[in-house]
Amino acid sequence: MHMADALLSPAVAGTMYLGSAAAAGYSIRKLRSEKEEQKIPVMGVMGAFVFAAQMINFSIPGTGSSGHMCGSMMLAAVLGPEAGFLTMISVLLVQCLLFADGGLLALGANIWNMAFYGCFVGGMVIWKRMTRNGMTRRTIAAASVLGCVLTLQLGAFSVVLETLASGITELPFGVFLAAMQPIHLAIGVVEGLITSAVLLFLYGTRPELLWNGTETGEGKSRLSRRGTLAVLAGMAVAIGGLLSLFASADPDGLEWSVERTAGMAEIQPEGGVYALADRIRAAASLLPDYTWKGGKAAGGTSVSGIVGGIAVACVCMAVCFLLRRFRRKPGDQKNNEET
């Protein structure tokens, strides 16, 4: 579910950064108020654990395929939602910087889609609510599966909204949604089973390691439940307002997507498979005498710069190679001193 930079417009990426930054700010404030410094090394090692555990492929019974865990729900169940959220941010940052899983500017969206839902909805709402009357094997398994399924569904839904609001894909909203949600339902069930298996093992061996949703003496939140809900509602309104502001200013925004989805005469999603097949045939028959969208200008622009582009690239490469010859390498000075 890691989104690449190319799947988001700068406005949507910025808005998602704002939302994620607000959640991160709240988490850091909570962590500082709890004064649990010993949690920080545990968070670091747990982040590395989640990353390492993602290397393991789990064979899914009866399908012949395999899946891997995401980890935000597990982090929330062990560290608590706030510490889990901050750990997931680090995991996503390392994945983005070192492994090209997700983009640098799409990080805000990825944090929201994977860490926020997993830790706050999965941990703070589902896990805390289901285990508040005491943990049993049944509640742990149910909370894990329900949490993973629900948070992955929310994450997938957000991916659809963010991509469409950025005007990246031509897929109509309904088709995109129908493609994303069922896949993530299956992934959510598998991840939920993996998470529940691990948490049940932990419950059987070291139950004190599981977060039971209670606050420590010093760590009582400064915000009441009503206050938290008010902050979350305010954030939702602010983010929604910002998103719609950008979308209305930019033709690649949400308004554009909705208008495009509903207004295109050629696309008839109501017609189902027949309309789709008809459209593919119509498009394919246009192939011999096609024109670039936007008339000849776009195609012309694409072609006319090729010679200039090659020339500029050759000059830049030549200058680079020349300059590199004169550049002092780190080992050169040492070698000169030795000789």
């Binding site: 090394p41 670091g44 090692v45 680090s90 940052l93």
Partner: peptide, 10 residues
């Protein structure tokens, strides 16, 4: 806090 977690994780 985030930087410390990131560096420890790394």
């Amino acid at each position: 806090e985030l930087i410390v977690v990131l560096l420890l994780m790394y």
